[in-house]
C-alpha cells in the first residue's frame, strides 16, 4: 500500500471515530453504552510513539473528548496515565497487533478510564456515595469494557498496521 494512501486511511479513520463519538450510533452500543472511543484512539498511537508524544496526544485527546461531555469530570488524568504505560510498554518488535493482545489492553484501559470517572464523580458529588450510584456505575463499567473489548481489536490493530507502514 502506498504511503499517501496510508495517510489518507489514518485521516479518514480518525474522522470516522470522531463521527462515532459525536453521533453515538445505536448499532454500536451494548445496553445503550458506546465503546470508550478515547481508549481506542489512544492505544495504537501510544504503542507506536514515544512516551512524550503519547502524553501530549493523551492531553489533547482528553481536552477534545471532554468538550463533548457535561463538564464536571475529566478523561485527561486517566488517559495521561494510560498513554504513559502503553508508550513505555511499546511495540518493541512484539507481535502486539495480534487480536487478543490489543483487546486485552483496551479492556484494561477502559476499566481504568471508567474507574477514574467513577471516583471523580464520587469526589465531586457527595450525594452519590450510596448503593444506587454504585450499582449503576458497575453496570456502565462492565458494559463499556465488553463493547470496547469487542470493537478495539478491529480498529486498533488496523490503525497499528497503518502507523507501522507510515
Amino acid at each position: 500500500m502506498p504511503k499517501n494512501n496510508n495517510n489518507l486511511l489514518i485521516f479518514f479513520t480518525i474522522i470516522c471515530l470522531q463521527a462515532c463519538i459525536i453521533t453515538s450510533p445505536d448499532w454500536l452500543k451494548i445496553n445503550g453504552i458506546t465503546p470508550c472511543w478515547p481508549v481506542i484512539l489512544l492505544l495504537p498511537f501510544s504503542l507506536k510513539n514515544s512516551p512524550w508524544k503519547a502524553m501530549m496526544a493523551s492531553i489533547l485527546l482528553g481536552i477534545f473528548i471532554d468538550s463533548f461531555t457535561i463538564s464536571d469530570v475529566s478523561y485527561i488524568p486517566s488517559l495521561f496515565l494510560l498513554s504513559l504505560v502503553w508508550s513505555t510498554y511499546g511495540l518493541h518488535n512484539k507481535k502486539i497487533e495480534l487480536f487478543l493482545n490489543i483487546g486485552l489492553m483496551a479492556i484494561f484501559g477502559t476499566a481504568f478510564v471508567g474507574f477514574s470517572i467513577w471516583v471523580q464523580k464520587i469526589i465531586i458529588y457527595s450525594v452519590l456515595r450510596n448503593n444506587w450510584f454504585h450499582s449503576w456505575s458497575i453496570y456502565v463499567l462492565i458494559s463499556e469494557v465488553i463493547i470496547t473489548g469487542l470493537v478495539a481489536p478491529f480498529v486498533c490493530s488496523w490503525l497499528i498496521f497503518a502507523y507501522k507502514r507510515n
Binding site: I22, T23, S24, N31, G32, I33, T34, T69, I70, V73, G114, I117, K121, V140, E144
Partner: peptide
C-alpha cells in the same frame, strides 16, 4: 440529534 442516556454522562 445525539443521545447518551445510559453512559457516564446522561445527556
Amino acid at each position: 440529534i445525539s443521545r447518551s442516556s445510559r453512559n457516564w454522562w446522561k445527556q
